[in-house]
Design a protein around this nucleic acid. Structure first.
Lengths: 117, 117
DNA sequence: ATGGTTACATACTTTGGGGTAAGTACTTGT
DNA sequence: ACAAGTACTTACCCCAAAGTATGTAACCAT
């Protein structure tokens, strides 16, 4: 008789919370370890894949390409590939991506005020 | 002979990235599904445990208390317990917690601009 | 022909965040 | 006597995110 809770928490989340809560919406886009770091580095201008790897040495290539793809799907990052050999692929922020500056900036402000070191 | 990479990505993260990147620092504090939602609801004033549960029906009690504890450890939320029966425990934002308003606000701005609905 | 460079892809494993379900202590209401 | 409310605690499970390791295609320089 132990019926499943009429509204599964997990299902409810996926369906409602993610689209109705703007903060969660943002977290879905730039949450996680690496995305904000990648975005931050793209704020200073377009970068090649290998450049990103160099300025974020700790990221694995799998994580880098995976997040770059997700950021493309979310229309935060634009990919530009030149058909030359060796390949030249440049990533840059879209307008939406650039607009995240305000968000990241307020985070930095808060972090500085509240002793991130 | 497959020696472990001299500098484990994971170890490096925990040690360096988290403390040196302000954005990641903030994500560590308010990342995840529930924390921003809890903080948001405390923005409108102190709330009892049961009140929070009521306004966030989808959260499980385990998640609620767990995140409230983490928020206390991070000094974002203050817990006030009255020694009466039945227990009355009130949660409120600390100064640091209130300062997050700027961060959440900029997130909401961005979400609205970029089609969260 | 061998190694280097670039931008990936992919199989496999581990970690931990989050969820489920149940129990606790103490008192009030009926 | 027993359910109900309050603020938790605990044991267990699942899955997705993250990490490890290796492979690939195309060309160039030596």
């Amino acid at each position: 008789m132990t019926a499943i809770k009429e509204s599964s928490t997990r299902n409810f989340n996926k369906g409602v919370a993610l689209t109705s809560c703007p903060v969660t919406f943002v977290m879905e886009k730039i949450g996680g370890y690496w995305k904000p770091i990648i975005i931050f580095h793209l704020m200073s201008g377009p970068k090649r894949y290998s450049e990103l790897k160099r300025v974020i040495p700790q990221i694995t290539e799998k994580m880098l390409i995976q997040h770059l793809k997700q950021l493309q799907n979310d229309d935060l990052v634009h990919r530009d590939a030149q058909a030359v050999i060796p390949p030249v692929v440049t990533y840059s922020l879209t307008k939406s991506g650039e607009d995240l500056f305000q968000v990241l900036d307020s985070m930095v402000d808060w972090a500085i005020k509240n002793g991130s070191v």
